[in-house]
Design a protein around this nucleic acid. Structure first.
Length: 327
DNA sequence: AAACCATACAACCGCCTCTAC
DNA sequence: GGTAGAGGCGGTTGTATGGTT
């Protein structure tokens, strides 16, 4: 006999969430905090399964989520971390605090995978051109050395630097009353002792096709204090999130809070002994990365590389090959 | 203008791990 | 130690949207 479903399928609504449902969910979480998802549908009256509520919150409604275009910096990080970790989207998302694993996964599947493939073909056709582009790589700022796998790192750098982003503005069309959700979130920001960056529902974006019922959600380019003042620009925040900065100060605090709220197992779960898993060592890498993040900020990649080399000598190349055949 | 195709992304599904009992 | 439930994760699908013919 198979395992019963997580929730009774009868009467459970599926498909896109409506703004009204979002408001109900946000209101509830604002009051009770994230967690205990099983009780959320019951207590809110939402005809959604608990998993759906959790996913809606973590992937869409949670404050601090950045939506829209991925910066070249983020793209480079994803490429590099994917090469390093494989399809461990949650672990990769740990290094991109404003992005969800789902977002990263989607972006990888729809953009980066294709681009890498194209690049691979191009590099096979003309390796000299690839070599020259490496020297100007923007992503060298955080790809600090080549101690790990020259081959894979070079490929990652080259991909990231040579790929010109042509993505269109990818803000998400959303029906109705987003401003209400925005207010709710802002209210939460005010009451939260250590609020993460705010998602702003942009009602004044440049898309003239918008009407009242079809706002587009965009990530605010400014991060707003509880007094409504601009705190730090998007670019500045992007810079703050660089590995060097994460390693040197506590800028990740806001992220830690929001992350821990929604993913409590990540907080100080240092008991590696509890992870006697039967899986591959990628899992262990994942655990250690998480522990590093939550118990003192994200380490720079060079640290990871060092760790990998120290702890997994002889497995690195194997892992790289497993993570993606092209590497 | 309509049909068709490609793309992007939100959401679902199934499996896994962890934890409480 | 075994079991069941809750939550997390990664793969996949469904659908809206935009572009092309």
């Amino acid at each position: 006999m198979g395992r019963p479903p997580c929730c009774d399928k009868v009467g459970i609504k599926k498909g896109p969430w409506t703004p009204e449902e979002d408001i109900i969910l946000v209101s509830y979480i604002q009051e009770h905090g994230p967690g205990n998802w099983r009780s959320v549908p019951t207590n809110t009256g939402l005809s959604r399964c608990s998993k759906s509520c959790r996913l809606r919150w973590t992937n869409y409604l949670r404050p601090g989520i950045k939506r829209g275009n991925f910066t070249p910096h983020e793209e480079g990080m994803i490429i590099h971390l994917q090469a390093l970790l494989g399809n461990k989207w949650a672990a990769i998302a740990s290094y991109l605090p404003q992005r969800t694993d789902n977002d990263i996964k989607n972006y990888w599947n729809t953009h980066l995978k294709k681009k890498l493939k194209k690049f691979q073909e191009a590099s096979l056709d003309n390796p000299n051109q690839v070599q020259s582009s490496n020297s100007t790589s923007h992503h060298h700022q955080y790809l600090s050395n080549k101690s790990f796998s020259d081959r894979s790192l070079d490929i990652s750098n080259n991909h990231a630097s040579s790929l010109k982003l042509t993505q269109s503005s990818s803000s998400t069309t959303y029906a109705s009353s987003t401003e209400n959700i925005s207010r709710l979130l802002e209210g939460w920001m005010r009451t939260s002792p250590n609020p993460p960056p705010l998602i702003k529902y942009d009602h004044n974006n440049n898309n003239n096709n918008n009407n009242f019922d079809h706002h587009k959600i965009t990530t605010t380019s400014k991060y707003i204090t509880d007094h409504g003042r601009d705190l730090v620009s998007h670019e500045e925040f992007d810079s703050i999130l660089s590995f060097e900065n994460l390693n040197n100060n506590n800028n990740a605090a806001a992220w830690d809070k929001s992350t821990c709220d929604s993913m409590p197992e990540k907080c100080c779960a240092s008991s590696s002994s509890s992870h006697h898993n039967k899986n591959n060592h990628n899992h262990n890498i994942n655990i250690n990365i998480k522990n590093n993040i939550n118990c003192g900020g994200a380490p720079p990649l060079s640290f990871l590389e060092k760790w990998l080399l120290d702890e997994n000598v002889g497995h690195v190349e194997e892992m790289m090959e497993l993570s993606d055949p092209m590497f």
